Amino acid sequence: MDRTPAAATADDFLDQALLEEAAKKSGLLWVRADGEAQARPLWHAWYDGAVVVVGDGGEQPLHGLAPGSGAVVTVRSKDKGGRLTGWAAAVSELAPNSDAWLGAVEELKGKRLNAPDTDTIADRWARECRVLRLAPVGALGERPGAMPDGSHAAEPMPTPATTRRPIPAGLPRLLFKRR
């Protein structure tokens, strides 16, 4: 099917609007760095036409994300939790205390929940963490009406956490005994 330049521009505009709105409203996105087998959840903010994340040094781990590399970003719907859109991204690191870094950090500070050092968080991030910018590259790989087939289910990542053991058989009698 041939597209006129006007139609392609309209589709590109709608894709950009979907990408931006989805990223702004979702509190969590899934990022798979080039060379990594699994995507990882990251909290983020939208700033200056790209997703920005802060990590390492006591914040969320940014495994495999390095300046100059690529990544695949998937955004879920905030209300339903399902896959909404996905795109390829170019990864770059923002230099601490640069104008772009300060703007990104202002956005990220509002998204950081339960920070132990709210007043000095920017100083700690400048010392210990990396702030990365994930800029969209090319057309959307996934969007409503153009989703891949299959479940995309993956094995859980290894973790030292364990599940609860079965409850003792007598516990329900203790909890629900009649008075």
Results as ranks from 00 to 15, higher is better:
residue 83 R to S: 09
residue 84 L to N: 08
residue 84 L to V: 10
residue 84 L to E: 12
residue 86 G to H: 08
residue 86 G to S: 08
residue 86 G to D: 05
residue 89 A to F: 02
residue 91 V to E: 12
residue 92 S to E: 09
residue 92 S to V: 05
residue 93 E to Q: 10
residue 93 E to V: 04
residue 94 L to F: 01
residue 95 A to E: 13
residue 95 A to S: 13
residue 95 A to P: 11
residue 96 P to E: 04
residue 97 N to F: 02
residue 98 S to R: 00
residue 100 A to G: 08
residue 100 A to E: 15
residue 100 A to F: 04
residue 101 W to S: 02
residue 101 W to D: 01
residue 101 W to T: 01
residue 102 L to T: 12
residue 102 L to H: 01
residue 103 G to Q: 00
residue 103 G to T: 06
residue 103 G to E: 04
residue 103 G to D: 06
residue 105 V to F: 10
residue 105 V to I: 14
residue 105 V to T: 11
residue 106 E to G: 05
residue 106 E to T: 14
residue 106 E to Y: 03
residue 107 E to R: 11
residue 108 L to Y: 12
residue 108 L to F: 11
residue 111 K to V: 14
residue 112 R to Y: 08
residue 112 R to L: 12
residue 113 L to Y: 13
residue 114 N to A: 14
residue 114 N to S: 13
residue 117 D to M: 02
residue 117 D to F: 02
residue 117 D to L: 05
residue 117 D to N: 04
residue 118 T to N: 11
residue 118 T to H: 08
residue 118 T to E: 15
residue 119 D to P: 01
residue 119 D to I: 01
residue 120 T to F: 10
residue 122 A to V: 13
residue 124 R to Q: 15
residue 124 R to E: 15
residue 125 W to A: 11
residue 125 W to L: 08
residue 125 W to T: 10
residue 126 A to E: 09
residue 126 A to N: 07
residue 127 R to I: 09
residue 127 R to D: 13
residue 128 E to D: 15
residue 128 E to V: 09
residue 128 E to Q: 15
residue 129 C to M: 15
residue 130 R to H: 10
residue 130 R to L: 05
residue 131 V to Q: 00
residue 131 V to N: 03
residue 131 V to M: 03
residue 131 V to E: 08
residue 133 R to M: 03
residue 133 R to K: 05
residue 133 R to D: 03
residue 134 L to Y: 03
residue 135 A to H: 04
residue 135 A to Q: 06
residue 135 A to F: 03
residue 136 P to T: 04
residue 136 P to F: 05
residue 138 G to W: 01
residue 138 G to A: 03
residue 139 A to I: 10
residue 139 A to R: 12
residue 139 A to P: 11
residue 140 L to F: 04
residue 141 G to Y: 06
residue 142 E to W: 15
residue 142 E to I: 15
residue 142 E to H: 13
residue 143 R to T: 02
residue 144 P to L: 01
residue 145 G to F: 00
residue 146 A to N: 06
residue 148 P to D: 08
